[in-house]
Design a protein around this nucleic acid. Sequence first.
DNA 1: GCAGATTAGTTAGCATAGCTAACTAAAATA
DNA 2: TATTTTAGTTAGCTATGCTAACTAATCTGC
Lengths: 151, 151
Amino acid sequence: MKVVKPKNLASGKASETADRLHSAAIHLLRRLRVRDRESGIGPAQLSALSVLVLGGGPRSLGELAEAEQVRPPTMSRIVAGLVRAGLVHRGKTEDGRRVRLEASAKGTKILQAGRRRRVESLAKALSSFSEKEQQQLGELTALLEQVIRKV
Amino acid sequence: MKVVKPKNLASGKASETADRLHSAAIHLLRRLRVRDRESGIGPAQLSALSVLVLGGGPRSLGELAEAEQVRPPTMSRIVAGLVRAGLVHRGKTEDGRRVRLEASAKGTKILQAGRRRRVESLAKALSSFSEKEQQQLGELTALLEQVIRKV
DNA sequence: GCAGATTAGTTAGCATAGCTAACTAAAATA
DNA sequence: TATTTTAGTTAGCTATGCTAACTAATCTGC
């Protein structure tokens, strides 16, 4: 997308980079989402499942909501869908109010298959670039990861 | 948390970068989304509006759907919301089937206000990086934009 | 030990946003 | 002119976001 340079903002350069990064992230995920549909599971469910599978074990609903930056009622419904589909098990904890959410074997399998598809698509797009450009993209990603931690 | 991820020898460097980019895009959007909510306009409407404001003038509905990677009925409803809110004007073209969609003054203003908020968040995160790193991020975003077009 | 406050999660109800199928209207074509 | 193609809308489904209001469990103060 072409970006018009602002004259009324304090930092034109940072502003432009922010907008372009934001837009790039939106469009990247929008394209990869096409592959996600093959899993037959919605994007929010997929993302929540990824926290349970890749995030290092079981969580409570509140922790999952926090990790996904959504409100508890939203996560409650997302989890309900995952449990209904047999992708997540719901267990009890010592604290009777909390639930223990854990990915099932089926959930883990589906998540990893979907992840593989997304990475395949993106890796294929990456592979048409030169060795140097891929190296630069790796650098960009590393920088981006650092930036994100500070947002 | 420092990421110390062993290289996946089976999938190679492109896959590793792909995986990290994918994850970075998810986490970036998750954080910026919070600020976007302050605009009182949904994410799809905001993104479509940005194409009209920053993308160099009026478009047809089909062009907008293409740019946003959604189906025409989806864009039809997104645009209906924008028109209802007075953020976009709907005009006629020589081709009676096509509509001419253009951001209104109000729409332009709202988009730029949201842009300012994102810049606040992201510029703050960027401020702890060196000039050189910031420069690098800006330049390499262009490369990312090229990659996305190939996904 | 029990009343009230706090905390975790759910339910209800609303809006946005994605899709396909089926429709209308205009333009292009045979 | 009749048919086909193209642009957009409408209808109806699902998923995902929110707040408000609820239930149930735990914690606190006395």
